[in-house]
Nucleic acid binder design. Structure first.
Lengths: 256, 256
DNA sequence: CGTCGTCTTGACAAGTATCAAGGCTGGTGG
DNA sequence: CCACCAGCCTTGATACTTGTCAAGACGACG
């Protein structure tokens, strides 16, 4: 029912339960107890199909969930149907949690592909109610949330001040960078199982123009893009085009 | 040195120290002690001139400040000089605080006009370290931060999916709405002491195109705009054009 | 084999940027 | 007091970017 290629395409590749541990341990030193808490949460994962609703607008942000595999997004729609995707939710991401008391979701989230998701209520309690018990997790979650915000500003920058060509270069570098963090980028080759319509909705472009711009990037030998897979061929050139800088300023864990 | 008109233009109008109390008490019931804490903070305000730097990129977000009068913004600049303003900081806003531990500013902030600002370290301690002591302030600050995020998504929506005409209609409604909250909108007439270049940088447009779009709005009798003052003439028409909805979903204080 | 969704292409229209110039206004200095 | 200057606003002409419409190609799937 589900061969190796399909798993790859859906982002269900590689050591699924590890992505979150791998990611969080880059932001803070996790104790063995913290790692096993994460592993226990991940062991209880479930799958949802593409299009499934991940988070409702106005839903309380006190039940974090771990995206273990697959792609989702946060978005909003104008009343005439135009859609803007605010950010992608990738494997290793946490969604459904805010550090602010009584916060609610300002936008809905849906699954763009089939996704593997773990409820992480235990993580929410640790972060919100008892920060002392799991300091590593708390610090890592804060870092994840900060990075989310930073990527969001990058998105606003792209959409507000960059043209289609620059936006796409920037997006591919962002995705590549984020997937590398969780070990899902194999030498610049990443799985990006999105339709061009989805990418267009994220970049604030029409599908037709997105398509033409993609082909320009291909023609110039900067990327490959087919079958839901992207390969970054000239990262330095792309970075120059996109004026790309990663948001990971300092703030790495002090101890190894 | 400073006549009434100039004060108006600079956003230094009206009962300056009250804006923060007026705003926060809409989001949570403040105890008398909490109100006097705010009043004490506001009493220690100082002024900075236009262009002054309010917050440095990567600065720790643990020292909240109250904007009592004047306009600021958060922004970032591409290496070739293109600037994107992410959001405006208006009277009654709080900046420099994050609810996440160890957070740093993902973007710098500057003053766009002369501003009156109060350091509010006491507020930061209450929110981050001792939430039990000032529950009303803590709740109100959380609400303020949530609204900031919601306005930011509105901004992304505007810039990503709306044309210049819709963007401007939406912006004027946002500003009007936010200033009403602090009592600085007099029947749709608001002080908006920004150059067109600044507005263009916020809306992701060129100055020339912004100017033409402004004139279209004027010509159609939807707004007046001159001398740093805007008057919303047809709020309902503007709201229909902009598909405007306020982010204040529910979450009002329970008790009056 | 037909259908559906997606990708691709062309032709054209609309939206937005750029360049350049002139006008207005408030402030400055002689 | 006046002339000048600088910053900002406005306008026109033009070019570039992006969107829309329409049609065909391709591939997955029932």
């Amino acid at each position: 029912m589900e061969n190796q290629d399909l798993r790859q395409f859906d982002g269900h590749a590689a050591p699924v339960p590890d992505v979150v541990i791998r990611r969080l341990s880059q932001y803070a030193r996790l104790s063995p107890a913290e790692e096993s808490l994460l592993a226990a949460l991940a062991a209880n994962a479930h799958e949802v199909s593409a299009g499934a609703h991940l988070l409702a607008e106005n839903e309380a942000l006190n039940r974090p969930r771990l995206m273990l595999a697959g792609w989702g997004c946060r978005f909003r729609t104008l009343s005439d149907g135009r859609r803007q995707i605010f950010e992608f939710i990738l494997p290793g991401d946490i969604y459904g949690l805010s550090h602010r008391p009584a916060a609610t979701a300002p936008a809905a989230a849906i699954a763009l592909t089939r996704c593997t998701i773990a409820e992480a209520d235990g993580l929410g309690e640790a972060v919100l109610d008892a920060p002392g018990t799991h300091p590593g997790l708390v610090a890592a979650c804060a870092k994840v949330a900060s990075l989310d915000e930073a990527w969001m500003l990058n998105q606003l920058m792209r959409v507000g001040r960059q043209n289609a060509y620059e936006r796409l270069a920037h997006l591919f570098l962002e995705i590549s960078h984020r997937l590398e963090t969780v070990g899902l980028a194999d030498d610049g080759r990443i799985s990006m199982p999105l339709t061009q319509e989805i990418i267009a909705d994220a970049m604030g472009l029409s599908v037709v123009h997105l398509n033409r711009t993609l082909q320009q990037l291909r023609r110039e030998g900067l990327i490959e893009f087919k079958n839901g897979t992207v390969k970054i061929l000239k990262p330095d050139t792309l970075a120059a085009i996109a004026d790309f800088r990663t948001p990971e300023v300092a703030a790495r864990p002090t101890a190894h």
